[in-house]
Design a protein around this nucleic acid. Structure first.
Length: 829
RNA sequence: GCCGAAGUGGCGGAACUGGUAGACGCGCUAGGUUCAGGACCUAGUGAGGGUUCCCUCGUAGGGGUUCGAGUCCCCUCUUCGGCACCA
């Protein structure tokens, strides 16, 4: 018999067993309660890192725990397989992105299997497979039909040298990350998905998710959606029939608008200045601003700059002529791209007014103190009452918001409105390794969608790669040219590909029916499994992925494919893996390779360490000594079983009936306390660290259990119950060693099939309880009393204790506070 | 600047609704075992005083509520995260 713990032999054995038995394969079973546990699928970058190991270890414990509770558990895994690094590999190492990606998938899959994760690999998906991305295209067409996918011009980061669009993250200090060329803003035609149409529902949904999702994430999403209440107001342009519409949240300050600011991109900026003598200055200004990238332009200390257009608008309330300026800080994308400027009550406007000597007019008066419009340097933004505001003088500024909004409507010069910060989702990418956008451009018919029956538009694989990072698609004639689906004349395909966030917006749905080919989703399967009961992943996706996938879910529901409104019932965002005070990163040289840890200690130790060291939502500080400690504990469990194996192999666990007392009863109590603690820690809080420490305590207690004097059957059965409990409770965390020990104890089938033990409050109850005695809130004594003692009995016992007597002596007892079963506080002053 | 989270031994972290602060683990110390080392087993381990036992202090700092505060309230400091000209 193998006496020493040999993790590699054991782990290989059980991984093979699980695979051969197909233990983690699931099918829909309406008779069973379903549980869908999902971890964010990885990008196949080459190797699994510790962040993955942590994410998937957490998920695996939950999955196995739920399986042992008898749920029908869906626990899938797949690959977020499109993306830029694959293209860089093609350029750098002359490997085709497809080969690079699939090789990485093979390798990483082997790594995940070595960790012993309980995935149903039959449901594996890779988003770069035509069988998957075909449905990205299908959804795109559906959205196009519904007006949810549309094309418009927009400004993007453009690198002239690489001739490509860059994502914001790829612009470093205003320079292209790859070649160092200065990035500039370029206006390009791009495809957008109309997420703004769902802004209100996405926002409302945040309230429903509250409780299941971390508040932090919901707050970030709410801020991102950025709903604000205000009004639209029309300002006529003087000596013209043009009207400038502004959005404001401060219609109460309308009388104080002394100028107007337009975004440089606003069409009126050029138009109004034409022929005014200011034209050249305005054009120069617009050009200069356009050369700055977004990051630079929105930097914290960016100077507020502007130029006068030479024209005036009319304040509809005062009929004053106010100058129209173009200002660099006004954003075309927000509101209407035009702002009424109230310098007395907005800091930006005040800075701007002072710089260009524009008048300041106070219209909100503080309830205490005064403002001097000639000298003030800080805008007054608090509540006050209205002055210089005609019929509204004296009105409280908060009340005025409503009254003025109403008045605007009545006068027909504006209306109450809400505005959202969120913009439509730009999904065009000038890249090769992505989902081709299924659109065709025909000189005769214009933009024509590819018919559904022609999907998928296959991404050509036999292709020549350029060295400069540009997508090869526009130069691949076999792909580029096609026949117009409408008129059959020669047409060009769209050569942009879809943002990879499209893939991750519905992959969880596809896991429920990964090979279904009659449509994107098998309604029966998807509505059996969805929504995801527990989603686990990094906080870095708090906004983009988690918002996009909520949006997709709503659209798919409206198409009729889904029944639920939200994809993830409950979300756990796990912390980062830290070493030496910094996130593990190649550049910091503090990376720990999971392979090395598994080689040295095995998967069970790796999992145990990661789960024991911190609660999941916190950052995890890597410690080599901590791993040693985890390994030591695993060995301790091994020896605990092996050392007692001879004695207890043929003994069944204690089944109540015979009365037990003394250390037998103590051990049994500890066993049941542990079951309760582990159950609560895992089910209520996902605090695996405290659950594991409770199991450690039980192991310590078993080691102290003096078996030499307890040779009789009863003692051994109690010991057997305790040892079985350790193995069963530990098995979701360290499944391999627990399977092995379970088998040695005589288990006939996988421990995953063994139901979790239940506890009895009766057994947990202590015979005697420890009461803390305080005098005036200070701990002075501890007394041990029978568990059924009354308050009076306890009080008497406490007052009779010599120590308490001595301390109290002549002091008068004013009152006592008794917390049942815990504490007695004697108050004397 | 705004919003949010956090701050507990030498270290990672416990303490769930206010009720024994420091569970569990790491590290360290001592004893046992061993030819020795390692491993293992047992015990101790917040600080200071007193050395069966007990006292004082102690959860970033200061105030408050309470019989009682790591936990609740107010102020300050530090760290981390998010947003950052959003009209």
């Amino acid at each position: 018999m193998e006496d020493r713990y040999n993790p590699h032999q054991i782990e290989e054995k059980w991984q093979r067993y699980w695979g051969e038995k197909g233990l983690f394969k699931v099918v829909e079973d309406p008779a069973k309660k379903k549980y869908y546990i999902l971890e964010m699928f990885p990008y196949p970058s080459g190797k699994i890192h510790m962040g993955h190991v942590r994410n998937y270890s957490i998920g695996d414990v939950v999955a196995r725990y739920k399986m042992m509770q008898g749920y029908n558990v869906l626990h899938p895994m797949g690959w977020d397989a499109f993306g830029l690094p694959a293209e860089n590999a093609a350029i750098g190492h002359k490997v085709h992105p497809a080969k690079w990606t699939y090789d990485n998938i093979d390798y990483m899959k082997r790594q995940l299997k070595r960790m012993g994760f309980s995935y149903d690999w039959d449901r594996e998906i890779a988003s770069c497979h035509p069988g998957y991305y075909k449905w990205n295209q299908w959804f795109f067409l559906k959205m196009y039909e519904r007006g949810l996918a549309y094309r418009k011009k927009s400004f993007v980061n453009w690198c002239e040298s690489c001739k490509t669009v860059l994502a914001n993250e790829q612009v470093e200090a205003g320079l292209c990350w790859r070649c160092g060329t200065e990035v500039r803003q370029k206006e390009l035609e791009q495809w957008f998905l109309k997420i703004t149409q769902y802004a209100e529902e996405l926002l409302k949904g945040c309230d429903e998710l509250s409780g299941g999702w971390p508040e932090k994430v919901l707050t970030m999403q709410r801020n991102w959606i950025g709903k604000s209440y205000g009004a639209e107001v029309d300002f006529p342009v003087a000596d013209s029939d043009k009207v400038i519409r502004v959005f404001t949240t401060r219609q109460d300050t309308l009388y104080g608008a002394t100028f107007m600011s337009l975004a440089p991109e606003h069409p009126f900026s050029k138009e109004l200045s034409a022929g005014t003598g200011q034209e050249k200055d305005v054009l120069d200004f617009i050009y200069r601003v356009s050369r700055e990238d977004k990051i630079e332009r929105s930097a914290e200390d960016a100077e507020k700059k502007g130029v006068f257009t030479g024209r005036y608008a009319v304040n509809p309330f005062t009929n004053d002529k106010i100058p129209i300026w173009v200002a660099n800080f006004v954003l075309m994308e927000y509101g209407t791209g035009a702002v009424m400027a109230v310098p007395a009550h907005d800091q930006r406007d005040l800075d701007f007014a002072r710089k260009y000597s524009i008048p300041v007019k106070v219209v909100i008066h503080p309830y205490d103190g005064t403002l001097d419009e000639d000298t003030m340097t800080e805008a007054y933004v608090e509540e006050g009452y209205l002055v210089n505001s005609g019929q509204f003088n004296g009105t409280n500024s908060i009340e005025a918001l409503d009254k003025i909004a109403e008045y605007l409507g009545k006068k027909g010069i504006g209306k109450r409105t809400v505005n959202y910060r969120i913009r439509d989702w730009g999904v065009s990418r000038q890249r090769y390794w992505g989902t081709p956008i299924p659109m065709v451009y025909c000189d005769e018919c214009g933009i024509v969608p590819v018919p559904y029956e022609d999907l998928p538009v296959i991404l050509p694989v036999d292709i020549e790669f350029r060295g400069d990072g540009r997508s090869p698609l526009p130069e691949t004639e076999s792909f580029l040219f096609t026949d117009c689906p409408k008129c059959n004349s020669r047409a060009r395909r769209e050569t942009d590909t879809l943002d990879t966030f499209v893939c991750s917006s519905w992959y969880f749905d596809r896991y429920t029916c990964p090979r279904y080919d009659k449509g994107p989703l098998d309604k029966e399967a998807v509505n059996y499994w969805m929504p995801v009961d527990q989603y686990i992943g990094g906080i870095e996706h708090a906004i983009l992925h988690l918002l996009y996938s909520r949006f997709f879910t709503m659209v798919l529901r409206d198409i009729g494919l889904l029944e639920m409104r939200e994809p993830y019932n409950s979300l756990l965002t796990q912390g980062m893996v830290i070493k030496d005070g910094a996130k593990m990163a190649k550049s910091k040289g503090n990376v720990v390779d999971p392979n090395d840890i598994i080689d040295k200690y095995g998967a069970d130790t790796t999992r145990l360490f990661i789960l024991f060291t911190s609660p999941p939502e916190r950052d995890l500080d890597w410690s080599d000594q901590g791993v040693e400690g985890a390994f030591r504990f695993i060995n301790r469990v091994w020896r605990m079983v092996m050392g007692n194996l001879e004695k207890i192999r043929e003994i069944p666990p204690y089944a109540s009936g015979e009365t037990i007392s003394g250390n037998l009863r103590d051990l049994r109590r500890k066993t049941h306390q542990t079951i309760k603690k582990v159950k609560e820690d895992i089910e209520d809080r996902f605090h695996f660290n405290t659950a594991i420490s409770a199991i450690m305590e039980l192991v310590n207690t078993i080691y102290q259990f003096d078996i030499e004097n307890e040779k009789e059957y009863l003692a051994l059965s109690v010991l057997r119950e305790a040892i079985e409990t350790v193995i069963i409770l530990l098995s979701p965390v360290a499944p391999h060693i627990c399977e092995e020990l379970w088998e040695k104890l005589g288990g006939r089938e996988s421990i995953i099939k063994v139901p979790l033990p239940s506890y009895s409050e009766e057994i947990i109850r202590e015979d005697t309880i420890l009461i803390v005695v305080q005098i005036n809130g200070k701990l002075r004594n501890r007394i041990s009393v029978g568990a059924s003692s009354s308050e009076d009995q306890i009080k008497k016992a406490a007052l009779n204790a010599p120590r308490v007597k001595e301390l109290l002596r002549d002091n008068e007892i004013k009152r006592t506070v008794y917390i049942p079963g815990k504490l007695l506080n004697i108050v004397t002053n």
